[in-house]
Simulated assay, not measured.
Amino acid sequence: MEILLLLALGVHLTAADTHTYQYFFTAVTPGIHFPEFTVVGLLDGVQFEYYDSNIRKAIPKTEWIQKNKGVDYWKRNTQNGQGQEESFKGNVDTLMQRFNQTEGVHTVQMMCGCELDDDGSTRGYKQYSYDGEDFLSFDLKTLTWIAPTPQAVISKNKWDKTGAAANQWRNFLENTCIEELKKYVSYGRETLERKVRPEVSVFQKHSSSPEVVCHATGFLPKAVMITWQKDGEDVHEDVELRETLHNQDGSFQKRSILKVPAEELQKHNYTCVVQHSSLGDERIVKEVPKGGGSIGVIIGVIAALVSLAALAGCVGFLVWRNSSGERNKAFEPLPQNSSPSTDDDSSSNNSNNKV
């Protein structure tokens, strides 16, 4: 049964309009049925470019990049990808030695990229990880490298010695990267600004389960808000909000888990509330079904004051845990003198990526 409710809500949800431009590089030990090396280019969290050690060439993943980049671009990025492949395979061997490892599955990742807010403020970052843990990161403010583990100090000292790598990366992150970001946003604006409403379901695994899941999927842009209510009042405790994930079609999915005793579900009405820019002044409300089971059967669309803009995010094939609680960052992409996708980049100097 569908219910339309009109409510006066005092909450106005806003989000800054932020664009992101990132490359993820991942190298893994062979033998796990996964390419030994991959490069993924993302704009606003959407993959637009791809390279791996099996196909050994850079390929477009969106219509707008294919339309705006010619043969020379893909040839250049293919050469860069092949050079990076050799560097990162060497990094895996190097770090296994530093950590006294002779076998097992190991991963080296690097991510670099930049962000641009609608107020003109920018951010840039470059980070490495090993086996899912932070290994080395670039501090753009101090132009130094941060080494959280003893094994990373060797790389830090090497790159801090002359300052050349720091200056190179500052120029890229503060200038070239932002210029490229603006250019790519103009290429893909129609796609990036497309809005698709989420499909929402609420369910329990079984009637006695203390966890209720609210799952939103298929939405664009990425920014979404999922909250819980008990008898019409907001619930903030015992709520676990999972990270936003990609779907194969380029849309996004996200879930929120509410932990509540089964007897409480029988006594009270719990609902999941989803707010998204595609809904305009509405929001989707799904009621938790009594007695557990599968998908909730009551769908409410409630008038609200909602204004969401796309927030950028990072998606990599392998994303490491970040003990500091900050944004998960994976490995970088461009150790050459500029980004692999920079139009005037013809260099193949991959030494800057060797740890």
Rank of each mutant, 00 (worst) to 15 (best):
T244M: 04
S346F: 15
T162S: 11
D234W: 08
V260G: 10
W228N: 01
L7N: 00
N350D: 11
S121W: 03
T20R: 00
E199S: 15
S207H: 14
A166H: 03
W169P: 08
S209D: 14
I302S: 05
V212S: 06
G280H: 03
L116V: 10
G113F: 12
L136R: 01
I55Y: 07
S155A: 15
N269Q: 13
S121G: 05
D344G: 09
E199D: 15
S323T: 12
K161F: 14
V40D: 12
G113S: 07
R170T: 12
R189C: 05
V288I: 07
G31I: 05
F99Q: 00
F37T: 05
K156E: 09
S294Q: 13
V306P: 02
H276A: 05
T94Y: 11
F317Y: 10
A312K: 00
A58F: 06
Q266P: 00
S277E: 08
S278T: 02
T191D: 14
A166N: 05
E190G: 01
V213I: 15
D44H: 06
V306R: 06
M110V: 03
I55A: 06
G232R: 00
L181T: 12
F219L: 04
N80E: 07
A147L: 12
A165M: 13
V319R: 05
G45Y: 02
K267C: 02
K195A: 04
V306H: 00
G292L: 14
F99D: 02
A165Q: 09
S209F: 04
K89Q: 12
A27W: 08
F48S: 01
S348T: 15
L311I: 08
N91L: 05
F138G: 08
T342P: 00
S278N: 09
P30M: 00
Q47A: 15
G90N: 11
H276C: 04
L136S: 01
Q97N: 14
V301C: 03
Q22A: 13
S307F: 14
H12V: 14
S338Y: 00
V239N: 04
N157Q: 12
T29Q: 01
T122Q: 05
G316N: 07
P261W: 10
L305C: 00
G293H: 07
T162E: 10
H106R: 04
N68R: 07
D343M: 14
